[in-house]
Computed example of a mutant assay.
Amino acid sequence: MSSAEAWERFAAGSRPRRSVNARGEKTWLNWTQYPDHGPAEEILGPLAGRRVLELGSGGGDNLAHLAALGALGTGVDIAPSRKAAAEGRWGHLPGLDFRTAEAVDFLDGTAETFDVVLSVFGAVWFTDPGRLLPAVRAHLAPGGVLAFSHAPPASRKPPPGNSGIRHDHTPAEWRAILGGHGFREVSVTVLAPPAGETVGTLLARAVAG
Rank of each mutant, 00 (worst) to 15 (best):
Gly182Tyr: 03
Leu140Lys: 08
Ala123Ser: 14
Gly182Asp: 04
Ser155Tyr: 09
Trp90Ala: 09
Arg184His: 11
Gln33Ile: 10
Gly88Phe: 05
Pro142Phe: 04
Phe126His: 13
Leu191Ile: 10
Val117Phe: 12
Leu118Pro: 03
Arg51Gln: 11
Phe126Pro: 01
Val186Asp: 00
Ile165Ala: 13
Ala103Asp: 10
Leu191Arg: 03
Trp90Pro: 09
Leu55Arg: 04
Arg23Met: 12
His150Tyr: 10
Val188Ile: 06
Glu102Gln: 08
Arg156Met: 05
Ala40Gln: 14
Glu112His: 06
Arg50Phe: 04
Asp77Glu: 13
His65Tyr: 14
Val20Leu: 08
Leu63Cys: 10
Ala84Pro: 03
Ala141Glu: 15
Leu96Ile: 13
Trp125Ala: 14
Ala147Met: 06
Ala40Tyr: 08
Ala40Phe: 10
Leu132Arg: 00
Asp61Thr: 07
Thr201Glu: 06
Pro152Lys: 08
Asp61Ala: 13
Arg17Thr: 13
Leu53Trp: 05
Thr198Tyr: 02
Ala85Asn: 12
Arg205Thr: 07
Ser57Val: 10
Pro160Asp: 03
Leu107Asp: 00
Ala71His: 11
Gly144Ile: 03
Asn162Val: 11
Gly122Gln: 09
Pro16Met: 05
Pro194His: 03
Arg17Pro: 09
Val117Ile: 14
Pro193Ala: 00
Leu132Gln: 02
Val20Glu: 14
Glu54Phe: 08
Ala67Asn: 06
Trp28Pro: 10
Leu55Thr: 03
Ala172Asp: 15
Pro134Gln: 05
Thr32Lys: 02
Leu66Glu: 12
Trp28Arg: 07
Phe183Ser: 05
Leu107Gly: 02
His92Pro: 01
Gly109Ser: 15
Ser119Glu: 11
Val207Pro: 04
Gly161Glu: 13
Ala111Phe: 05
Glu5Ala: 14
Thr32Val: 02
Asn162Ala: 15
Lys157Met: 14
Leu93Cys: 04
Ser19Met: 14
Phe114Lys: 03
Glu41Met: 08
Ala79Trp: 09
